[in-house]
Every structure is written in C-alpha cells, then in structure tokens.
C-alpha cells in the first residue's frame, strides 16, 4: 500500500526532556517500594456486541466484503 501521510505534531525535544524529568521526579517521590518499582494494578475488560449497518447508511464504501 502507498505510504500514509504524517500530519501529526511531535514533541519538541527540549519539552520532551522536561516532561521526562518531571515525570521521573513525581514517580520517584511517590513510589515507596524498596526496589523502586512502580506497581500497576489493573483488570482486563471486554465489552461485546453486534455491529450494525443502519438502513440507508451513506458511508458504505465500495468493498467486496
């Protein structure tokens, strides 16, 4: 397929470094475990259902599905 455009904005390197330093400082100050690791607690989630094509859908592309 042809290459896609890259219109998105990127972080200025100085701002990226500033953000990294700030995030590191916040985490270091708040993480209390002796090994200095951050603990993430989370569950996996699933939401399921039936996709629908509304009658008269104007966005239907010309595909051979």
């Amino acid at each position: 397929m042809p290459a896609m455009a890259f219109p998105g904005d990127r972080m200025d390197p100085k701002l990226a470094a500033e953000a990294d330093a700030l995030l590191t400082e916040i985490a270091t100050r708040n993480v209390s475990s002796p090994d200095g690791l951050i603990t993430h607690r989370y569950a996996g989630t699933l939401l399921w259902g039936q996709p629908l094509e509304p009658a008269g859908n104007k966005n239907r592309p010309k595909l051979c599905d």
Partner: peptide, 12 residues
C-alpha cells in the same frame, strides 16, 4: 466481562 485484578511492576 472483567478479569481478576493483577499486579505488574516496572522501573520508573
């Protein structure tokens, strides 16, 4: 649905 909560650790 939802799984049980797990823990995952990583360096800062």
């Amino acid at each position: 649905a939802q799984t049980d909560t797990i823990e995952w650790r990583q360096p800062i």
